[in-house]
Design a binder for these strands. Structure first.
Lengths: 207, 207
DNA sequence: TAGATTGTTAATCGATTAACAATC
DNA sequence: TAGATTGTTAATCGATTAACAATC
């Protein structure tokens, strides 16, 4: 089932919001409550859940536990997926932090760097391997997703290598747009763009 | 002139690509060349530039220097805008790094944290102030934009304070959706969502 | 000239929202 | 029951792409 990208993003957010609900001992939630927590509309919630074929319990709302499981069957893989962070500087460590304590289908199993100070140490909970062992480690651990947080100048080469070694999905946090073959899924995020966008709309709002 | 958000994002990217061109001593660029570097279509480039009213030099393409200036008049403010990073952990430091050496209208002038180890030190090129001086510093320096990189549990309170002290735009990197008044521009980015999205489409591509 | 490139309108695509009958 | 909530279709909105006349 190939869902719209935006729906996939929201499903990820629904799931985490529902986990919060469970922590609050709130086991059922109405569409408008879920919507309010995420600052979207109730219609959007219902439409997304319609797309994945989940129905509420009438008069009680959505069963948080059930819906969490349902979302899992849609967006998670059957087996766990191994992930690597390439470039374990400040940004890489920040990203690594998000994996800590999260038991999910996504396992952060390696990081790569060229700094001798970092190599073979455990940084932010994950072992850092030298760049020249990338091929071996990616293949032996079956790593499928790479998060690229290297300095801009290395981004293109690193991505090309990662793809050659078998990576199937890339999350690119460098400011360099990457070129990947069609069978590799690429998601790019550029912090500078975001900051400039905020500045633009602040300006427009105050005119 | 209120441009579509997506166009604003691309203008930011055009500008940086054009700066690369100048560094390569490439002073003129055709729409399809600019498009190729960003992996978008030439039509999109031309349409965006149409929206800001920039015309090419026939047969030579766009004048990089001129277009950079033109984009500046559209997306930059007249005066510089002061920015603060709230929470100078790994992510905060990574973001701070993007400001280094960039001479733009956006000045990173302060960071805030509660860790006594960090307070009153210069971290990643910017002085870190204690959390309890936020009001004073935001007001005295006229800080207009806050980048929030604190742990999730503090996000809501920090945002509420920032808004109360005069912040007009927020870039939220925590996983907590924020509630802000309508006159504050809010941009949110959630790394977990992005990673899960990549995992979903990798799965769908390989089915 | 012929071919490449452009700016702009119209058409298409995709995502959000409005409307509403059905349920409890 | 009356009111709240739901799932789903149709309408709207916004963004991208196709089409094309104009320029050099």
């Amino acid at each position: 089932m190939k869902l719209p990208g935006k729906t996939v993003e929201r499903l990820s957010e629904y799931r985490r919001t529902l986990l919060d609900c469970l922590n609050e001992r709130k086991n059922f939630i109405f569409s408008h409550e879920l919507a309010a927590r995420l600052h979207i509309t109730a219609v959007q919630v219902r439409r997304d859940l319609m797309l994945i074929g989940y129905a509420s319990v009438q008069r009680k709302g959505y069963d948080a536990k059930e819906l969490i499981d349902k979302i899992g069957t849609i967006i998670d893989s059957d087996e766990s997926i191994n992930v690597a962070i390439i470039g374990i500087g400040n940004l890489g460590r920040a990203v690594a932090g998000y994996f800590k304590g999260k038991r999910s289908k996504l396992n952060l199993v390696a990081s790569f760097d060229t700094d001798p100070q970092k190599i073979n140490k455990v940084i932010s909970g994950v072992k850092c391997y030298p760049h020249n062992e990338m091929e071996e480690i990616i293949k032996s651990l079956g790593i499928k997703i790479a998060i690229i947080t290297v300095p801009a100048d290395y981004a293109r080469d690193i991505a090309e290598e990662a793809v050659r070694f078998g990576i199937k999905g890339i999350l690119n946090y460098t400011t360099v747009p990457l070129n990947v073959p069609s069978w590799v899924y690429l998601e790019e995020y550029d912090m500078i763009t975001s900051i400039e966008k905020v500045a633009y709309f602040v300006k427009e709002n105050t005119i």
